[in-house]
Every structure is written in structure tokens, then in C-alpha cells.
Amino acid sequence: MSVKNKKKILFLDRDGTLIVEPPEDFQVDSLEKLQFVPKVITALHKVVTHSDYLLVMVTNQDGLGTDAFPEQAFWAPHQKMMQTFEQEGIRFFGVHIDPTFEHENAPTRKPRTGMLTHYMESEDYDLTGSFVVGDRLSDVQLAANLGCRAILYTADEEKYRRWKAEEEALKKQFPCLCLVCNDWHQLADYLLIHKSRRAQVWRQTNETKISITLDLDTPAEPSIQTGIPFLDHMLHQLARHGALGLEVQVAGDLEVDEHHTIEDTALALGQAFAQALGKKWGIRRYGHFLLPMDESIAQVAVDFSGRPYLNFHAVWHRERVGGMPTEMVKHFFASFCHTAACNLYMKVEGENDHHQIEALFKAWARALRMAIEITDTGLPSTKGTL
């Protein structure tokens, strides 16, 4: 199986965002001038512990390497800062420093993107799910230029009050601006709760070739093609009642039978949910739904516990519904549980097998919607991990 897991990035400004920018000359050119902004270390530790963001530092250092700002004076405090972060488990994937002056209009100077073309051109990164965090409007413009979201941060109370007063106008000017804040703990919670929850999964075996795109937070008209019309119909129910963005394309060995196509579709779908949920920060975790459909009644409860288990109760009255073997319904959900790492309780009663299966899928979708909802700023477990 091939899984395309695009990496999300936190592009972080340095001076004024991670460390205090000296007001007299705007240069951190000695160890005595090195001072971290309040709460940044504990907040970043929380972010890297509970998310998959890559940290990338992007900073303008006016005239670095000139007589007024010798490189030797710069590197001592910079390396001390990096060492301190490293000791706290905060590692930077990349550090990009532009030494030019503003009047030079260098393509590498923020808010221009010359230092960051690798991230823009590579298919390995999800820039729409990434953030730029900085203390200047040029950082917000950088986010717009990259196609990221932006967060304005400052520890300067006067600047913060001014930004808050202008926040509505700033967000109209910069639609990418999501948050204006003066507290790194608030910023960390926002990043963990509002991280993009999308996934792309490719699964290819000798029996099936599957592509799934899933967005947990942006409902869209589904595009489903598995080669089994009844399964397509059920996955449309998942998308609609789960309020999901879902695309599923499957080419399976239906000339043999339906088993491989149904099983592998469920395995890939479970993988997509696991990938999109990530560390599960802030989710409700539990969901349940009781759904009637004509003479049938379905009960579904789900727990994204990290432990796969299916408790399934159904009695079928015929072998197939619309080309889908009824014996494969249980196997579909067992396969989903395996890769989604969730616990599912499912029970359905009725006389019409079409109604029973459809009621199960709709109740499953509604229970999933409840379980994946963001309701908190923490992890829903006393263990500290799920």
C-alpha cells in the first residue's frame, strides 16, 4: 500500500516571535541580548508532541555579514537558541535566513518566497494546511504568497491592542489571517485544534488499485466509483451523513468476486481516517447514533481509542443486495476498524436487508461525525496518547 501523507508546516518568524527583538537596534548580536518570548518553549513543545507539523524558521536579518552586523556576533546567540529548543525536544526541519536589506528587494527576503520555493514546488507538503506565524504584516503577506494561513503574534501589548482594534479590517485585507494573539499557549491550542484534517491514500495490490481523498471538515459532493453500485450508494451515505469531503476511486478484480474490492476499500478508508485525525487532539472521541429506516432500526457507537475492535449484530435474509454480498458488510466494518484503530459497536434489526444495511451506514456516518468533532483543547484520554 502506498500512502501519500503530505506534511504540514509551521513557518515561524524568529525575532519578535520566538525571541525578543531588541528595540534599540533590532539585532540579537550577543548572548546577553538573547531572551525567549513568554511561554514559547512550553507551547512549541506541546505542538510538536501532539501534532505532525514540521517547524521551519524564516527570518530576515538586515545586513547580516556587514561590519554593522558581523556573522560571528549573530551565530553565537542563534546557536544557543537552537540548542535550547533542541534540549526541549523542539527540532527545526529547516532554517532560512535572508541577510539583505529591505531596499535591495531581494527575491529571498520576506514576504517574497525565494527561500521557500522547495516547499512550494514539492508535492510532499500541504501548504493550504500550513501556517505562517510572525509579528509583522509582512509575515501575513508571506502566508498569502505561499498559500498558507497566517497568525499574527506579539508580546507587545500596545501593538496587540492596535491589531485587535483593526482585526476585522486586517482579515478583510488578508483573508489568510486566522488569529491575532499575544499568548503562545493560546496560539498552540489554536494550531492543534485548527490543523487541516485531510488525507490522501493510495493502496495498490495485485488485486485492487484504490485512491481515496478525505476531508473531515469540508463537506463536498462525493465522487465514488468502486465498481459495486450498492457500495457506491453506501459510501455516498457516509459522505452526506458524515458531512465529509470524500472521493473514492477503485479498480478491483471483480471478475474474481467482490471480496477484495470491498475489503481493500474499507482498509484504505480506515487509513484515511487515521491519517486525517492525526494525534486526535481536541476530538470528542466517542460517537453514537440510533437511526430508524422504515421497519429497520440501527444502533452504532464508535470510540477512536487506538484499539481496533468490532462488535457486530445483524441477521440477513438474503445473500446479496444490489451486487454486494451481505456477508461482506461485517467484513467491511471489521477492515475499517483495523486501519482506523477504532472500536465499533453495531446492531441492526429489520426485515428488508437493503434497509438494514443502509440504516447501518447512515448511523455509522452520524456516529463518526460526532466522534471526530472538535470539542476541547486537549487530548480525550488520561493516558496522554491515543
Rank of each mutant, 00 (worst) to 15 (best):
V3P: 00
N5V: 06
N5Q: 13
K7V: 02
K8N: 13
L12W: 01
D15E: 02
T17M: 03
I19F: 06
F26N: 12
F26T: 06
Q27F: 06
L34E: 03
Q35N: 11
I41C: 02
K46V: 04
V47W: 05
V48G: 09
T49F: 04
L55I: 09
L55K: 08
V58E: 02
V58H: 05
N60W: 11
D62H: 07
T66F: 08
Q79V: 04
Q79K: 08
K80W: 00
M82T: 03
M82P: 01
Q83D: 07
G89E: 13
G89P: 13
G89F: 12
G89Q: 13
F93Q: 14
H96G: 04
H103M: 09
H103R: 12
P107L: 10
P107Y: 00
T108W: 04
R109G: 13
G114W: 05
G114P: 07
M115R: 07
L116W: 07
T117A: 06
E121L: 12
E121F: 03
T128D: 15
G129W: 10
V133F: 10
R136M: 11
D139T: 09
C148P: 11
A150G: 08
T154M: 00
E158T: 14
R162L: 11
R162W: 05
E166W: 11
E167Y: 06
E167T: 08
E168Y: 12
L170E: 09
L170R: 10
K172V: 15
D183F: 08
Y190A: 02
H194S: 12
R197E: 10
V201T: 01
N206K: 15
N206G: 13
T208K: 02
S211N: 03
P219W: 02
G227W: 03
H236F: 12
H236G: 10
V248N: 02
Q249C: 03
V250A: 04
V250M: 00
A251E: 05
D257A: 08
H259N: 09
H259F: 12
I262E: 07
I262M: 08
D264I: 06
L267M: 09
A268T: 03
A268R: 00
A268K: 01
K280Q: 15
G282N: 13
Y286L: 14
L290H: 14
L291H: 14
L291D: 01
E295A: 05
A298W: 06
Q299S: 11
V302F: 00
D303K: 06
R320H: 09
R320K: 15
G322Q: 11
G323M: 07
G323K: 06
P325Y: 13
P325C: 05
P325I: 11
E327N: 14
M328C: 01
M328D: 02
V329S: 01
K330L: 05
H331R: 08
F332E: 12
H338G: 03
A340T: 00
N343K: 03
N343L: 00
L344C: 14
L344G: 02
L344Q: 05
V348S: 06
G350M: 04
H355S: 05
Q356K: 15
L360D: 09
L360P: 07
W364G: 11
R369S: 11
A371I: 07
T375P: 00
G378S: 11
K383V: 13
L386M: 13
